[in-house]
Design a binder for these strands. Structure first.
Length: 292
RNA sequence: ACUUACGAAGAAA
């Protein structure tokens, strides 16, 4: 069973669900009965392809076969429904798991919270956040990051920054995800300068690093942060600064991807720099990126 | 050290 599960997980992670399902029926033929691991591996793959209904069927089937769903199995189903925006169904399984005596954990909450954030229902998201505090399920960096991102995307920079502060006060260390949400949010709010400043300080100032409680090995300057900054600069008409960032990517061990090229191209178009557009196009082919 | 399963970030459509 262990070997089969490992194999199933491998196929699923390689995006070959159909092969995994073949292997699964082979298991059934051999009389090897699935367990919660088997169930969660296949369900996750179904959800990843947007086939949440089929994940639920499998859930019911295995449930009927006498495998009791554990917290991971429930989490996958709940997250699947959250990602497709069906919060009602997600909540249904959330209460079902509670009735089954399966305790929701921080991952359950972060799926639900992110689901509400993506739907723009920050009130519901914040309510669940308070619930974690009440139930003594410590909110972690993922929950805070989802909420910060949600607040920014729903045009509430103040709430986002307040949560960021609270998170640090709670001694939760922001990671690269957290920082990229902050930077992207600031940029989209037209505060590119603040974003650059925050990053610059984070790179150089031990004091800020200490305040953010990150160690020196944590680099926030990943490709996503660069993209946000470049887009912010472009929208601000500062295509030269953006191009400069773009050209220094390599010095930081990053390589430009399709999205970055798109952002910079768009910037040149905005500034009507047709010659630069042509040059970029050539560069793009040179580094082996095909326009999509 | 990790080692069968679950949650958060960038362009466009």
């Amino acid at each position: 069973l262990f070997v089969y599960n490992t194999l199933l997980d491998g196929y699923c992670k390689a995006g070959k669900l159909s092969v995994a399902l073949d292997v699964y029926s082979q298991m059934e033929r051999k009389g090897i009965s699935p367990d919660a691991f088997t169930c969660s591996i296949l369900m996750k793959s179904y959800c990843g392809e947007g086939r949440v209904e089929e994940a639920e069927s499998l859930f019911q089937k295995i449930n009927n076969a006498g495998v009791s769903p554990n917290v991971v199995v429930y989490n996958i189903l709940i997250d699947g429904y959250c990602k497709e925006g069906s919060m009602e169904k997600a909540l249904k399984f959330y209460s079902q798991m509670t009735d089954d005596g399966v305790r929701p954990n921080i991952i359950t909450y972060s799926s639900l919270i992110d689901g509400y954030c993506k739907r723009g229902d920050m009130e519901a998201a914040m309510e669940l956040y308070s619930e974690t505090v009440v139930k003594a399920i410590e909110p972690d960096v993922v929950v805070y990051t989802a909420l910060i991102d949600g607040h920014f995307k729903n045009d509430n920079m103040q709430a986002a920054l307040t949560l960021f502060r609270e998170m640090i006060e709670a001694s939760i260390t922001p990671n690269a995800f957290t920082i990229s949400c902050l930077i992207d949010g600031l940029c989209k709010d037209g505060r590119v300068n603040d974003a650059v400043k925050l990053l610059g300080e984070g790179q150089t100032s031990p004091a800020l690093r200490k305040m953010l409680q990150v160690d020196s090995s944590c680099s926030f300057l990943n490709g996503i942060v660069y993209t946000s900054l470049m887009q912010g600069l472009c929208k601000d008409g500062r295509i030269l600064r953006a191009s400069k960032l773009f050209s220094e990517l390599r010095c930081h061990g990053l390589k430009p991807d399709t999205i970055m090229f798109y952002v910079i191209l768009q910037g040149h178009f905005r500034s009507k720099n047709l010659p630069d557009v042509m040059m970029l196009q050539a560069d793009m082919l040179k580094v082996g990126i095909m326009p999509n």
